[in-house]
């Protein structure tokens, strides 16, 4: 038994050494979306004119090439507004040429217009991919998440996600300007019918705790304030969604979204564009799934946005 346990200890020691070595090597050598974007922004801080923030809706929905020459897409899948606010306060003071910031509003609001997402899934980071995000932002942006529920999930993500394959190989989904193309020829069927999404009636939405809504408002205000301070246009957009998704949205949620924008706009300037139910984006061929534009849709949407923003 002693010999066996000794052997286990030896193998474990070798294993720990290997993991540490791999971790260190990949951190300094290989690129992934997070490290690439951090480096890009820092290296191009004096030339970036437009910065796109937010989550998968903008990551896959706005092609920076079509918006202008010096535009960078810094959105990342499943990103919660907390990170955008922290990134903005970190980078805007360094960016001498920044003209505008685009933020996708509504989708990740805890009590936003999409009631099916009321569970604050972007906030609590319940899913594995969100645990992964926590680590990535802490590791590459040095933005730790200091909220209570994350202490526990951060530990579990250390065990399960810290050495995810993407980190090791430098797997990068985004292109050189931070945009991630979703193949237009493949429609993902999994999220197409929104069968997994729960529709909450208005009466239920009003019963939800306001804590997370208030927090969202706090970060949005913070972003608007920074942009105002550095004379940068703060543009909020609600990206188009497919009809199956829109059917699950709630009137009360949309009202709350408008209230939120109004309340921030009383303090700082905000430009708001809502494309959620825009007739121009009804075609099936524009969508990868019920809430994400594919490459064709992204092209179309970016051109429209460019026109509306007067760029």
């Amino acid at each position: 038994m002693k010999r066996f346990l000794k052997d286990i200890v030896y193998v474990t020691c070798i294993l720990i050494c290997l993991i540490v070595a791999v971790e260190v090597i990949q951190y300094y050598v290989s690129d992934n979306n997070y490290s690439y974007k951090t480096k890009y922004i820092f290296n191009h801080r004096n030339s970036i004119e437009g910065l796109i923030l937010g989550h998968s809706h903008t990551l896959r929905g706005i092609d920076p090439v079509l918006l202008g020459k010096n535009v960078f897409n810094n959105a990342e899948s499943g990103k919660w507004i907390y990170y955008d606010a922290k990134e903005l306060s970190k980078y805007v003071p360094l960016m001498s040429n920044l003209q505008y910031v685009i933020y996708p509003i509504g989708y990740d609001m805890p009590q936003g217009y999409l009631s099916c997402h009321y569970e604050y899934d972007h906030h609590f980071k319940k899913e594995e991919s969100h645990d992964y995000n926590i680590h990535m932002y802490a590791k590459y942006e040095h933005i730790p998440y200091d909220r209570f529920p994350l202490k526990l999930t951060a530990f579990s993500s250390f065990l399960t996600d810290n050495l995810a394959y993407e980190e090791i190989t430098g797997h990068r989904d985004c292109d050189s300007l931070g945009f991630e193309i979703l193949d237009s020829t493949i429609h993902c069927s999994i999220n197409w019918d929104t069968i997994h999404l729960v529709h909450l009636p208005d009466s239920e939405i009003t019963k939800l705790p306001s804590k997370y809504y208030d927090e969202y408002k706090e970060y949005l205000t913070e972003m608007a304030s920074i942009c105002h301070q550095y004379n940068v246009r703060f543009v909020c957009v609600t990206t188009p969604c497919y009809k199956t998704y829109i059917n699950k949205t709630s009137t009360r949620g949309i009202e709350m979204l408008y209230d939120l924008i109004d309340s921030v706009a009383t303090k700082y300037p905000i430009e708001y564009y809502n494309y959620l139910s825009d007739e121009e984006f009804r075609a099936d061929s524009f969508y990868y799934d019920c809430s994400h534009l594919n490459y064709i849709g992204a092209k179309h949407f970016t051109k429209r946005l460019k026109k509306d923003l007067g760029l």
Binding site: V11, L15, I19, E128, I168
Partner: peptide, 19 residues
């Protein structure tokens, strides 16, 4: 052999598929 086993563990950890 121990190195090989440890490498196998690392491979499992790195190249694991979705849960």
């Amino acid at each position: 052999r121990y190195m090989l086993f440890a490498v196998f563990f690392v491979l499992i950890y790195l190249f694991r598929g979705g849960y």
